[in-house]
Write a protein that binds this DNA or RNA. Structure first.
Length: 310
DNA sequence: TACCAGGAGAGCG
DNA sequence: CGCTCTCATGGT
């Protein structure tokens, strides 16, 4: 009936593919000569930025591209999101710095496992761990002729059969115990990751936090990047840094107050706001024309003791 | 060479 | 509760 193809094009504007795939949401995209190669829903795919959206190429012809449009969220109405934002200058500047930044909609297990591995790791290191994990325990996927082999993200069922030592050998350190235990529980259906979609934010968050190695930050990342709970607001050190710098400059504000602020200030799409702030503070406006409203994190030489009282 | 990054969890008062 | 310490690894 429908004609399957290896290439297609999605209209979406604005869509900053590079910023979106590199903004700490996903860890498997490989940039090569202007394109991004990765695996989504068990399919190898290469994405290219186009003037009016995104060009996509797969290894095996497909007729139905919803697995990819959903992942990329090309149909998300960005202007509707922006319209809900509070009209403050820091947020406006962050959006201005990267107007095409979007939230992805990832596979819950891959997202959960990846963020369990993210704890106390920098993005480059997370990518390295995930790469090894996929190479060793992921199912091979079809790639174009001449392209090196690629692997899907290993299923929870597969990782549940690994020993802790095998996982540690993937350079994940103390996170191996957490990942193995989480894989075991997810494989057993407790929690049923697919069912979290139907819960409210608080209940889904509690279910995720019941898993070993999953605290508030990682739970919020999964809620936002995999389930589309767009009010979820992951508070990591970068976002805390951004909030302090942009909204409370030269004031000693504690995490408690910043959390309260984040929960009340940004509205129903707070998670989107968080993503713009995260990207802005990490790039310092470097990727686009630099914006005086956003400055890169202060390059301190030594000692950044924040709450230091002695 | 020592030290840093950066989140969860255990232990403590 | 609200601190502080530890955890494993690679990069500076």
């Amino acid at each position: 009936m429908t004609c399957a193809d290896r290439r297609t094009r999605f209209r979406a504007q604005p869509y900053d593919l590079a910023a979106t795939l590199n903004s700490g949401q996903a860890f498997r995209w490989q940039a090569t000569d202007g394109a991004f190669a990765g695996v989504v829903s068990g399919r190898w795919v290469r994405l290219t930025q186009a003037a009016d959206g995104i060009a996509a190429e797969v290894a095996v012809p497909v007729a139905d591209w919803r697995w990819l449009t959903n992942y990329l969220q090309v149909e998300a109405d960005l202007s509707a999101v922006l319209a809900t934002f509070p009209p403050d200058e820091p947020l406006r500047a962050a959006v201005r710095a990267c107007p095409g930044l979007r939230l992805l909609r990832q596979d819950p297990w891959e997202c959960l496992a990846s963020f369990i591995l993210s704890s106390t790791k920098q993005i480059v290191q997370i990518r390295q761990i995930v790469r090894v994990l996929c190479e060793r325990y992921g199912a091979p996927v079809v790639t174009p002729a001449g392209h090196p082999p690629e692997f899907g993200f290993p299923a929870a069922e597969r990782l549940a059969t690994c020993t802790e030592a095998e996982l540690r050998a993937c350079k994940m350190g103390f996170r191996a115990r957490y990942l193995r235990a989480a894989a075991e529980r997810v494989a057993a259906g407790a929690p049923d990751l697919a069912a979290l979609r139907d819960l409210d934010l608080g209940a889904a968050r509690a279910a995720l936090m019941a898993l070993p190695g999953v605290g508030p930050k990682i739970a919020d990342c999964v809620l936002l990047f995999a389930y589309g709970f767009q009010a979820a607001f992951p508070l990591d050190v970068w976002v805390l840094r951004a909030l302090r710098q942009l909204y409370f400059p030269r004031q000693p504000v504690g995490v408690r107050r910043l959390r309260a602020f984040s929960e009340t200030h940004f509205g129903p799409y707070a998670g989107y706001a968080q993503q713009y702030l995260f990207h802005a503070i990490r790039t310092g406006g470097r990727s686009q024309e630099s914006d005086p409203a956003i400055e890169p994190p202060a390059r301190r030489r030594r000692t950044c003791r924040v709450g230091g009282k002695s």
